[in-house]
Amino acid sequence: MYRKREQAVCHRDGIKDTPSLDHCVPSCGNIARTDQHAADLRHRAELLDQQAAHTPQPVGDRLRANAARLRGLADAHDRTRITFQEASR
């Protein structure tokens, strides 16, 4: 993991000067996702789309937008991930 403390946007509790993993922010440059995380994001997006199909339009639109955002995060992971082979060069 390439964590840079000064760039962490997660909540710090004032007691310790380290990021808190339970306060991760998706836009943080320090975030690390695995391929399984990306698959989970896509699965969650699929569930949201299914729910949106049976929900009135304003709420359904928000569910579909959230599904698209999750797919975007998964796609970004696929484009920028570092594989073991690349890391060992």
Rank of each mutant, 00 (worst) to 15 (best):
D22R: 14
H11A: 06
C28N: 13
N66E: 14
I15R: 15
I15S: 13
D17C: 06
T34M: 06
R12T: 01
A68S: 08
A74E: 04
S27K: 07
K4E: 06
A8E: 08
T83L: 12
P26Y: 05
L21S: 13
I15K: 15
A52C: 09
R81E: 03
D40G: 06
H43E: 13
V59C: 08
Q7K: 12
A67G: 04
L63Y: 11
R69Y: 09
D17T: 06
Q57L: 14
F84V: 14
Q85F: 05
R42M: 11
D17M: 10
R33K: 15
H11C: 05
H37D: 15
P58S: 05
Q85W: 07
R42Q: 11
A65D: 07
G60S: 02
C10V: 00
M1N: 03
G14Y: 03
R33T: 09
H43D: 11
A67Q: 05
L47P: 02
R71K: 09
A45S: 10
A53L: 10
A68N: 05
P56C: 02
L70W: 07
L73I: 04
D61C: 08
A39M: 12
P19N: 11
H37C: 14
A87R: 15
L21N: 12
G60V: 01
D40W: 06
A52E: 09
H54R: 12
C10K: 04
G29S: 13
A87W: 11
Q36R: 14
G72K: 04
S88I: 14
H23I: 05
R12F: 09
R5E: 06
A67R: 02
I82K: 10
R89G: 07
Y2Q: 07
D49F: 01
S20W: 12
D22L: 13
